[in-house]
Amino acid sequence: MAQRDVVFPAGRQALYELHNYSPAVRANGLLFVSGQVGSREDGTPEPGLENQVRRAFANLNAILEAAGCTFADVQDVTLFIVDPDTRFQAIWDLVRAEFWGAAPYPATTAIGVTWLSGFDFEIKVVARLPD
């Protein structure tokens, strides 16, 4: 079996080792990013939904940058949201303009969940690696 080509953002490797997963893996011209939550460096949740969303995107951006990617390279997005009936639109309004810019947007799936280990929002993506 080939060894995985793992991407680690600066300063958070201990958190990934503690929880036994890779933040992202490069394969076949794509970057598969594990779900990112609004966690501080010590792994605790950022207080408040908007702050958690912004921190999750900052954590995601750190991984993208470590792989030489930007948000423009993101092709597929999966959002996990606790209580999506009351939160989805606020989250989407926040991230759409600030992070995705103008259309066309990446393919997106939003999933309502009941538990995210103390978090309210999680995002995972697949990005195209630069040539």
Rank of each mutant, 00 (worst) to 15 (best):
A62S: 12
F80C: 08
V25H: 01
G48L: 06
S117I: 09
F121V: 09
G43K: 06
R12Y: 09
T86C: 14
A107H: 07
G43D: 09
Y105D: 09
V113R: 00
L31N: 00
L64M: 05
T78M: 06
G118M: 08
R4S: 14
Y21E: 01
T86N: 15
L60V: 05
G29S: 12
R4F: 14
Q13N: 06
A10Y: 15
A110G: 06
A67K: 04
Q3S: 14
A90Y: 13
A90I: 15
A58R: 12
V7Y: 01
V113G: 03
W115Y: 15
Q89D: 15
A97V: 12
P104E: 01
F8D: 04
R96A: 13
P106R: 02
W100R: 03
F71A: 11
G68D: 07
V7I: 05
E65W: 03
A58F: 08
C69F: 01
R12I: 02
Y105Q: 08
N28M: 10
P106F: 01
L49I: 07
L64P: 02
T44C: 13
V53Q: 02
Y16I: 04
S34M: 09
T70R: 06
Q36L: 01
R128V: 08
D131A: 12
T114V: 10
Q75E: 14
V74A: 04
A97N: 10
R26W: 05
L18S: 09
D85R: 15
R40S: 09
D85T: 14
G29L: 09
A102L: 11
D93Y: 13
L129E: 07
N28F: 11
G68T: 04
V53H: 04
I123Q: 00
D73I: 07
Q52H: 10
G112T: 09
C69A: 08
V25R: 04
V33S: 05
A90Q: 12
F119I: 07
D85Q: 14
N61P: 02
P106G: 06
W115L: 11
A24V: 02
A103C: 03
Q52Y: 11
